[in-house]
Design a protein around this nucleic acid. Structure first.
Length: 419
RNA sequence: CGGGGUGUAGUAUACCGGUAGUACGUCUGCUUUGGGAGCAGAUAGACCGAGUUCGAUUCUCGGCACCCCGACCA
């Protein structure tokens, strides 16, 4: 894409009403726009990042048998009353409204009730199980206090997968498979090193649930990490008994602030019982379906990546997440020779299938273009200028590294692929 | 939801009970092109409402919005 066509602009200064680094950088670079507290629009660059994260998530969810669907935001209160989560004394994040007829409606803040009720139509026999269904959808939560940029919003994108199994053993096996898939997702998203599978409170049907906590000073959670064993315990469940049970040593645990980027939960029959989701087994007995739920917030994940991977100049996107693979920065583009060289480089890359942002803007100084490139954070930068033209080459610089190298034009594609 | 704070051009910020200033942006012209360029000119602003006052952007009250701490939570 030609940057001259991109309608967003970068900003030199951070907005006064944002303190969180993720929001400051994403707004300055033109990835998101704040509409109100805890509510952000995704602009073209931001949507590309979000799309890339969703692609990673889809691939990993599909790989463990997930089937994607899309449930509704508008929720009838009937199912929620059955699970006892409609009452605002039980759930205080509801956005509720009414139909013109006066019927109560809620905006979905999670979808256990909706999908459990729906699955009664499709699950009757053991032959129908297991089912692993997920969606990537906007959730609405009326948070008392939105904060930390993309970290805690009132409207946010969430991937939520729900598993429906015959037995606890089947649930356990899928739960482990999903945990592994989550590790792959966070690794591909560039935060694998700092993200720990974390023991957290389990609820009614298992002793623990697991959170995936990314170590970050911007985090709202506190976890105790065993870096060797790569597991952590959420402060809320930390006791000597738990430490012993997990085979950890109190002295090697390190306290860290962290961001919850995912969680997985064994639900058992918490929803299948009240909503009447059951199946008939091989011997003709009626059994409740055993459920689990598995969430990742792609928007929060995007914010976490920015918190973890950025420097004083801007964002440093991991390759698979970056809005573009390569950023061509043409300096002195008013010069016809440079314009030609830049255009042909852009054409060469795009025809090779390399997703490229091409800074073809005229009347922008070299300094501004380079500063913008650093701020936007595409991992590979190619500079075309009078200087590179002299040696019939282009300058390649990785965003995460300090030094640039000259690459002959004919070798550019190979250099990018191996960067 | 409890406590605290802040609302001034598109953005970031000054000052002031008496004609609201600066920087960036934007526009025009000329010069410039390897780290947010230079010169000249232009553009654009006091959250909303009530009160006090000769006069309110400034003081008071109410509303709304936003931020921070806490509680709660993906």
């Amino acid at each position: 894409m030609k940057q001259s066509q991109l309608f967003t602009k970068t900003r030199k200064e951070a907005p006064a009403d944002e303190v969180a680094k993720n929001a400051q950088l994403l707004i300055r670079a033109g990835f998101i726009n704040k509409e109100m507290a805890g509510v952000y629009s995704y602009l073209p660059l931001g949507l590309r990042v979000l799309g890339n994260l969703e692609t990673i998530i889809r691939e990993e969810m599909n790989a463990i048998g997930g089937q994607e669907l899309l449930l509704t935001t508008l929720q009838d209160k009937e199912s929620w009353e059955k699970s006892d989560r409609w009452d605002e004394s039980k759930v205080d994040v509801w956005f509720k409204t009414k139909l013109a007829s006066g019927t109560d409606i809620g905006l979905g803040w999670t979808h256990e009730e909706a999908i459990t009720a729906m699955m009664r139509q499709y699950i009757q026999s053991y032959r129908d199980l297991p089912v692993y269904a997920y969606q990537i959808q906007t959730k609405f939560r009326n948070e008392a206090r939105a904060k930390s940029g993309l970290m805690r919003g009132r409207e946010f994108i969430m991937k939520d997968l729900y598993s429906f199994s015959r037995t606890q053993e089947d649930l356990d096996a899928f739960y482990e498979a999903c945990a592994k898939a989550y590790e792959r997702i966070f690794a591909r998203a560039g935060i694998g090193e700092i993200t720990y599978r974390t023991f957290a409170s389990g609820g009614a049907f298992s002793k623990y649930s697991h959170e995936f906590q990314a170590i970050s000073a911007a985090g709202e959670d506190v976890v105790y990490v065993d870096k060797e064993k790569r597991i952590a315990i959420n402060k809320e469940v930390l006791t000597d008994e738990v430490i012993a049970e997990l085979g950890l040593n109190k002295d090697t645990l390190v306290e860290e602030k962290s961001i919850e980027v995912g969680n997985i939960f064994k639900l058992g029959t918490r929803f299948s019982d009240p909503l009447g989701l059951s199946y008939v087994n091989e011997t003709g007995e009626t059994k409740p379906v055993i459920m689990g739920s598995y969430g990742i917030g792609p928007g929060r994940l995007m914010g976490t990546i920015v918190e973890a991977l950025s420097d004083a100049k801007g964002i440093i996107w991991p390759r698979e997440v970056s809005p573009f693979e390569v950023h061509i920065v043409s300096l002195g583009i008013d010069n016809e020779e440079i314009r030609k060289a830049s255009d042909s480089l852009y054409e060469m890359l795009t025809s090779a299938g390399i997703d490229t942002l091409y800074d073809d803007r005229t009347e922008k100084s070299a300094g501004e273009k380079l500063a913008d490139a650093d701020l936007i954070g595409i991992p590979v930068r190619l500079v075309v200028s009078a200087r590179t033209l002299e040696s019939a080459s282009v300058e390649m610089k990785k965003r995460a590294e300090a030094d640039a190298v000259l690459v002959r034009a004919a070798d550019v594609i190979v250099a990018i692929k191996t960067a």
